[in-house]
C-alpha cells in the first residue's frame, strides 16, 4: 500500500513536469515569428505528448504519435514553409484580447463539464465496465496475440481501420489534385 501511494505521487509529478514543458512549447509556437521555429516547437510538443501517452499506459498511441505526429506532420509543415514563406507577419497587440476572452469562456465551460466526469483512474468508471473489458478477456481465445490494441484495431474493429484507409486515400487524392500532380504531368506529356 505504501509503495502504491508512492508510485502514484511520482506519476503525478512526472505528468505535471511534462505538462509544464508542453505548455512552454505551445507558448513557443504562439510567440515565435519564424515559422521554422514554430514547426520545431510543434515537433517538441508531439514528442512530449508521446511521453505523456506512455504515462497514461497507451504505448501504441505513444509510438504512433512519435512517428506520425512528430515526424510526418513536422516534415509536411517544413515542406509547406519551403514552398511559401518562412516569416509570419507581425500581429497587433490589440488583436489578442477578444480571442483571449473566447478561449477563457470555452475553457471555463469545458472545466464545468468535466466536473460530472468520473474520477481519474477509477476502475468503476463507465468507460472501464463495458466493452473494453470484454476485449481484454476474449483476445487470448479469439485472436491469440498478446497485444490487445492490435487485436481490436485489426480484427474486432477491422472495418474502422478500412474506413480510416479510405479517409487517408481521399486526402491523398485531394492533395494530388490541389497541387496539380495530375495536370502538370499531363501537360508536360502533351507538350513533349
Amino acid at each position: 500500500m505504501q509503495s502504491n501511494s508512492g508510485r502514484k505521487k511520482i506519476e503525478s509529478i512526472i505528468i505535471l513536469a511534462l505538462f509544464i514543458f508542453l505548455v512552454i512549447s505551445a507558448i513557443g509556437v504562439l510567440w515565435v515569428k519564424h515559422l521554422f521555429a514554430a514547426a520545431m516547437f510543434s515537433g517538441i510538443f508531439s514528442f512530449l505528448s508521446a511521453l505523456l501517452f506512455v504515462m497514461l499506459d497507451a504505448v501504441d498511441v505513444a509510438f504512433t504519435e512519435a512517428a506520425v505526429g512528430a515526424g510526418v506532420s513536422t516534415i509536411l509543415v517544413l515542406g509547406t514553409i519551403v514552398l511559401t514563406t518562412e516569416r509570419a507577419k507581425e500581429w497587433k497587440a490589440s488583436d489578442n484580447l477578444r480571442p483571449l476572452l473566447l478561449v477563457i469562456l470555452t475553457g471555463a465551460i469545458l472545466i464545468y463539464g468535466s466536473l460530472d466526469m468520473p474520477e481519474f483512474g477509477s476502475i468503476s468508471a463507465p468507460a472501464q465496465t463495458h466493452v473494453g473489458l470484454t476485449y481484454l478477456e476474449s483476445t487470448p481465445k479469439d485472436i491469440g496475440i498478446p497485444n490487445v490494441v492490435t487485436a481490436v484495431l485489426a480484427s474486432y474493429r477491422g472495418f474502422d481501420t478500412l474506413g480510416e484507409t479510405a479517409v487517408v486515400f481521399t486526402a491523398g487524392v485531394g492533395v494530388l489534385m490541389l497541387l496539380g500532380g495530375f495536370i502538370r504531368t499531363r501537360s508536360r506529356r502533351d507538350r513533349g
Partner: peptide, 21 residues
C-alpha cells in the same frame, strides 16, 4: 482500457491526412 487507444490511433493517422490537405 484498450478501446480509447485504438480509436486514438485511427484519429492520429486521419489527423495527419487532414493536416496534409
Amino acid at each position: 482500457n484498450p478501446l480509447p487507444h485504438v480509436l486514438i490511433l485511427t484519429a492520429i493517422v486521419v489527423g495527419v491526412a487532414t493536416t496534409a490537405l
